[in-house]
Simulated scan of single mutants.
Amino acid sequence: MTLLYRDRWYGPEQLASDSSWRTNNTTSQDAHPHWNCSGVGTYTYKGYSQHASLESDGVRYTATTSNWQDPGVSRFDC
């Protein structure tokens, strides 16, 4: 699952989301949300993803990624 937000004066606004899953494969499908930000102004954008893999031996691996820890990096004009 992947989520894309932008900061607004009233709180975070969810712009897009996407997810994918596959069984018995070595890769997953495209799970990036796509959003056209042309001409909307300068905002801080944030992304968050959760990842999981259930291996054949029954072990489940999970991870998350986000850019929320570094607030100044994701501020740009669209």
Rank of each mutant, 00 (worst) to 15 (best):
residue 47 G to C: 06
residue 14 Q to N: 04
residue 77 D to E: 15
residue 55 E to C: 02
residue 61 Y to P: 00
residue 69 Q to L: 14
residue 5 Y to E: 08
residue 11 G to H: 11
residue 11 G to F: 03
residue 65 T to G: 06
residue 76 F to E: 07
residue 13 E to L: 11
residue 49 S to G: 10
residue 45 Y to Q: 06
residue 59 V to T: 12
residue 71 P to D: 10
residue 61 Y to G: 03
residue 33 P to N: 06
residue 1 M to E: 12
residue 72 G to L: 06
residue 10 Y to M: 02
residue 74 S to C: 06
residue 15 L to P: 14
residue 35 W to Q: 12
residue 70 D to C: 03
residue 7 D to Q: 13
residue 63 A to V: 03
residue 59 V to E: 01
residue 3 L to H: 11
residue 49 S to D: 14
residue 70 D to H: 08
residue 7 D to S: 09
residue 4 L to N: 05
residue 53 S to E: 14
residue 40 V to L: 09
residue 65 T to D: 02
residue 44 T to E: 03
residue 20 S to Q: 07
residue 41 G to M: 04
residue 35 W to Y: 14
residue 44 T to R: 10
residue 68 W to T: 15
residue 36 N to G: 05
residue 64 T to W: 01
residue 68 W to E: 12
residue 78 C to G: 13
residue 8 R to P: 00
residue 34 H to G: 00
residue 19 S to I: 04
residue 46 K to I: 05
residue 29 Q to V: 04
residue 29 Q to T: 12
residue 1 M to A: 13
residue 39 G to T: 03
residue 4 L to Y: 11
residue 9 W to I: 05
residue 54 L to V: 13
residue 44 T to F: 00
residue 57 D to V: 05
residue 11 G to S: 08
residue 66 S to F: 00
residue 16 A to M: 13
residue 48 Y to F: 04
residue 36 N to M: 11
residue 7 D to I: 10
residue 52 A to F: 04
residue 45 Y to P: 00
residue 22 R to V: 08
residue 66 S to Y: 02
residue 62 T to V: 15
residue 6 R to N: 07
residue 45 Y to N: 04
residue 56 S to N: 08
residue 49 S to I: 14
residue 10 Y to T: 13
residue 49 S to C: 07
residue 25 N to C: 07
residue 18 D to A: 15
residue 54 L to I: 09
residue 30 D to C: 02
residue 14 Q to W: 02
residue 75 R to E: 09
residue 70 D to I: 09
residue 69 Q to G: 13
residue 64 T to E: 09
residue 28 S to N: 14
residue 10 Y to K: 07
residue 24 N to F: 00
residue 3 L to M: 14
residue 39 G to E: 07
residue 54 L to T: 11
residue 74 S to V: 01
residue 40 V to F: 06
residue 42 T to F: 02
residue 19 S to H: 13
residue 69 Q to C: 09
residue 32 H to E: 10
residue 8 R to C: 00
residue 38 S to I: 01
residue 19 S to M: 14
residue 30 D to M: 08
residue 18 D to G: 06
residue 72 G to E: 12
residue 58 G to N: 01
residue 72 G to H: 08
residue 34 H to R: 15
residue 74 S to Y: 00
residue 44 T to S: 08
residue 41 G to W: 06
residue 46 K to E: 06
residue 25 N to H: 10
residue 38 S to N: 13
residue 2 T to E: 13
residue 26 T to E: 08
residue 54 L to G: 01
residue 19 S to G: 06
